[in-house]
Write a protein that binds this DNA or RNA. Structure first.
Length: 523
RNA sequence: GAGCCUGUAGCUCAGUGGUAGAGCAUCCGACUUUUAAUCGGACGGCCGUGGGUUCGACCCCCACCGGGCUCACCA
């Protein structure tokens, strides 16, 4: 509201303006946002992106208009199971239920009343774990409770219109059998994709034939005895619930067009929609659950805080983005920069951190040290414990610790994981030469003997540094720099490294000795 | 066939109708007991091509060329 309206708005506010305009035209005083879920898959990184982005638009809408709104997370759990997913137990059992609504199939995990319910719970847990505000909706509930009945009868009245909208988009084979109405077989419980031979608007039923045994059936479209085919289902939902906003991936562009046409045929305006680009993997291929390419949400959250994932999702939704490992550090540093500049931002609505945190920046947001720097540091010193990193961080920020910099503490934790899983395994430890071998052996013995106590220096780090220096001078290293090069390349697997005395002080004398012994054994 | 995205420094990418930006890479320097993260500086771009609108275009419009994805079975 305080935004300068002559300047371009951030995309969530642009979307919010479109919604406000729609509400104005319809005379509505509240907005319904919807996100939809396919039935078979588990929540994934795209799910997160869609709900996060929708939530940002919703927040912008609230800020812009002050009007109430709801976010409905709608699960199409009445959909028929097409194939048995790879990543579930009890595949044999599931095979017997192919074609039936997910809420009529036993939970292969044995935890819930049905497979659909299992997936619904997974989804809700997932969304709650990120703190999203939403209301959950189950298609099965809505259908069987009669909540969709009026809309379904309306669809029946416009059956031919809908068929005429969809038919031109179908291939010849499917065209012969298409109907927006899928009766549930009264005997087998399977969601039937059969030609609808006759529509009886007055009684609210359709007539069809079982292709297996030739028996004819008359099935009510209401009360959960039938459901709608996907595009018609989407349109009916928009119609019945009066959805005002829904975003979707560009793979659904045609579906949005058709569903919009259908909802107009039913007599309402489709919601404001936004098409976002898909996520690609490193090679530019679409990320798909079945292929398992790209990055999972668990992977991301192992190596960076969730704010960085939000940052990634915030930026330019309508632009295709590669989602693979290397984007994590940048997204994290982008978030840190945004969080740092937000308190003094002239136009806070343009700042991703404003959206990510719902307008209120939490205490201790941001970090005085960048994530990229931490990753470098962790790599250079081969950090395998938070305290090692903190020791070096305090060279910049005296007295810093996890209590005074909680967000930095998270970054430290992630930097260690990143180093452990990606940097450390790729390191090449050079074998020592004979001269170096003698020097390293000497260093290990000197450390074990506690000789550092004989050297001058205010701190243990200084004494240790002097010891390392003295050992180098005892051996024929020329120049002496080659002694230090040896330490980094043979012991740490890096070309260059930290002041070694400081490293030993933080890493520990005994562990350093072990490090040397390991290197000697390896060589 | 239809649709969407994209082309900016060597690489990966930001960017705004008004003097082209970052990170990495490269080079120089500072700090350091000849050693790191770090810090300072330099180098580096007809902003794909050609038109148009404009006082002014990397930005808006059109065409073309190149790169890529998605949908055309299901959802």
């Amino acid at each position: 509201m305080s935004e300068n309206t002559t300047s371009p708005l951030s995309w969530p506010f642009r979307e919010a303006e479109r919604i406000a305009e729609r509400l104005k035209q319809k005379g509505k005083d509240h907005a319904l946002f919807e996100t939809g879920y396919g039935p078979s898959g588990l929540p994934h990184i795209g799910t997160f992106g869609e709900v996060a982005r929708t939530s940002w638009v919703r927040k912008a809408f609230t800020d812009l208009t002050g009007l109430p709104s709801r976010l409905l997370a709608f699960s199409d759990d009445m959909d028929g199971l097409r194939k048995v997913p790879d990543n579930v137990p009890n595949k044999e059992m599931l095979r017997e239920f192919i074609g039936k609504p997910l809420t009529k199939i036993p939970d292969p995990f044995g935890k819930f009343a049905s497979f659909g319910e299992h997936n619904n719970n997974m989804l809700q847990d997932f969304l709650r774990s990120f703190g999203f505000e939403f209301e959950f909706a189950s298609a099965s509930d809505y259908y069987t409770s009669g909540r969709f009945d009026d809309a379904l009868l309306h669809v029946l009245r416009h059956h031919d219109d809908i068929v005429n909208i969809i038919l031109p988009t179908l291939g010849p084979e499917r065209r012969a059998t298409y109907s927006p109405i899928l009766p549930i077989h009264p005997r087998t419980g399977i969601v039937m994709q059969v030609p609808i031979e006759q529509v009886d608007v007055a009684s609210g039923t359709v007539f069809w034939t079982d292709p297996d045994d030739g028996l004819k059936y008359e099935t009510a479209v209401t009360g959960g005895s039938a459901k709608l085919q996907w595009k018609a289902d989407w349109a009916m939902r928009w119609y019945a619930l009066d959805v005002d906003y829904e975003m979707s991936g560009k793979d659904l562009i045609d579906s949005v067009k058709l569903s919009s046409s259908i909802v107009r045929a039913l007599g309402k305006e489709p919601p404001v929609t936004l098409t976002y680009e898909l996520f690609l993997d490193e090679k530019g291929q679409k990320i798909s659950k079945s292929k398992g390419n790209g990055l999972s949400i668990d992977q991301w959250l192992t190596y960076a805080p969730k704010e960085s994932l939000s940052q990634f999702m915030y930026h330019a939704p309508q632009r295709a983005k590669k989602l693979f490992f290397d984007v994590i550090p940048r997204a994290t540093d982008d978030y840190i920069a945004a969080a740092t500049s937000l308190p003094t931002a002239e136009k806070p609505h343009d700042n991703p951190a404003w959206h990510i945190h719902g307008g209120v920046l939490p205490e201790h947001a941001g970090s005085p040290v960048g994530f990229g720097m931490l990753l470098n540091l962790a790599s250079v010193i081969n950090a395998d414990s938070p305290e090692m990193l903190w020791g070096f961080i305090r060279a910049y920020i005296p007295g810093a610790d996890a209590d005074s910099y909680p967000f930095l503490a998270k970054l430290v934790h992630h930097a260690i994981a990143y180093n452990r899983d990606f940097v450390a395994p790729a390191k090449k430890f050079r074998a020592p030469t004979e001269v170096e071998r003698a020097g390293l052996t000497d260093l290990a013995q000197s450390l074990t003997a506690g000789e550092q106590g004989q050297f001058p220096g205010e701190t243990p780090a200084e004494k240790l540094q002097n010891l390392v220096y003295a050992v180098g001078k005892r051996h024929p290293f020329a120049p002496l720099k080659s002694w230090f090069d040896c330490l980094y390349q043979v012991l740490l697997g890096t070309l260059e490294g930290p002041r070694f005395g400081g490293f030993i002080a933080l890493y520990g004398v005994e562990r350093t000795v072990t490090l040397i012994e390991t290197a000697l054994a390896r060589g």
